[in-house]
Design a protein around this nucleic acid. Structure first.
Lengths: 159, 159
DNA sequence: AGTTTTTTGGTCAAAAATAGTCAATAAGAC
DNA sequence: GTCTTATTGACTATTTTTGACCAAAAAACT
C-alpha cells in the first residue's frame, strides 16, 4: 500500500504535468480535505518531497486568499549524464578540481557563467566557514565542498 | 481568485508601466471608490507591496489637492545595487526571510528561477551542516546564511 | 493675519481567513 | 529491536479587509 504522502506527491506531480506551465497553485485546506487528512500533512509532503534539491521551489502565503505554489525548475538531462557528473565530483573535491569541472560544464552549456559563479562562491564560503569558524581539516572541507557541489548540480539537473 | 490587494497592486504597476516616467500620482479616495473598498485598503496595498524592499518609494500629502506618489527606484551603479541588496539581507536572515527576498529579487529580474534554486540549495546546505555537523545555534545559523546570501548576491550584481 | 471649515491622507486595532511549527505517536524498513 | 518516515493535532503566525478615529494642508471666512 502506498502511503498517503506518496499519493499526495503523485497527485501534485500529476497536476504539474497536466498543466502547461511548470507551476501549480493549491489551497492547503482543500487539498487536505480532498485526501481526508490534516492540513499539516501537506506541509510534510512539501518538506519531504518538493525540496530545492529535487528541483522544486515552493512559495506560499497565509491569510485571506492564501495559497501554496509549487514550481518545477525543470531541465532535461539524461540520467546517465547526472551520474557521470556526480562521479566526477566524488566524495571529496579540491577547489581547483571544482573549478575545472564547473568550467567544463559551462563549456558544454549545462550551466551558464552566472550559475558557475554562484556555485564557486558557495563552495568558497563553506570552505572559509569550515576553516575559520569551525577549524575543520582541509580534507573534511573538501568533503563538505563535494557534498554542496553535488547538491547544487543535482538541483539543476533533476528532471 | 485574486485578492483585492493584488488587483490594486497590478493596477498601480500597470499605471507605472504605461507612464513614461518611473512615477505615478494618485488620489486615495478615488482609487478606493474605483475598487469599491475603504480608503485605508490603499494604505495597506502601499505598505505591503510598494516597499523599498521591492524597489519603490511612496510620498504623499494630505489636505486639498492631496496626493499619493509612487516612485520606482532605479540603481544605475552596481555598487548602489549591492548596498541596497546587502541592506535587505542584513546580518542575519531566516529561511523564510531569504525565500521572500529571493522571490522579490526574481520579480525584479535581478536573479532568475535557476539562480534562485541554486541559492536556496546553498542556504539549506549551510543550515544543515551548521545544525547537524557543527551543532550551531539557530541564530548563528541565520548569521551564516545571511553571510552566504550576501556573497552570492554580490557576485551576481557584478556579473 | 488669524480662525474655522473642508478636504485629504494616516494609524491602529479587530475580525476573518489562511498557512506553519513542533512534538507526540504510529507505522514501516532493516 | 532500533532507526527512519509518516500521521495527527494543538498551538502559533501571517495576511487581508474593514472601520472608527486622528492629523495635516489648503481654502474660505472673518
Amino acid at each position: 500500500m502506498r502511503s498517503l504522502t506518496e499519493i499526495i506527491e503523485s497527485h501534485i506531480i500529476d497536476l504539474l504535468g497536466r498543466n502547461e506551465e511548470d507551476v501549480v497553485s493549491l489551497r492547503r485546506k482543500e487539498l487536505a480535505e480532498q485526501f481526508g487528512c490534516v492540513p499539516s500533512q501537506i506541509n510534510y509532503v512539501l518538506r519531504s518531497r518538493f525540496t530545492p534539491e529535487r528541483g522544486y521551489l515552493v512559495e506560499s502565503q497565509r491569510g485571506g486568499h492564501g495559497y501554496i505554489k509549487i514550481l518545477k525548475i525543470c531541465y532535461d538531462m539524461p540520467e546517465e549524464k547526472v551520474r557521470h557528473v556526480e562521479d566526477l565530483v566524488g566524495d571529496s573535491i579540491t577547489e581547483q578540481g571544482a573549478k575545472r569541472l564547473l568550467l567544463s560544464l559551462q563549456s558544454r552549456n549545462i550551466i551558464d557563467a552566472r550559475e558557475r559563479l554562484l556555485i564557486e562562491v558557495a563552495l568558497r564560503h563553506i570552505d572559509d566557514v569550515g576553516e575559520s569558524t569551525f577549524d575543520v581539516s582541509p580534507y573534511k572541507r573538501n568533503v563538505l565542498q563535494a557534498d554542496l557541489l553535488k547538491r547544487m548540480l543535482r538541483s539543476l539537473v533533476f528532471s
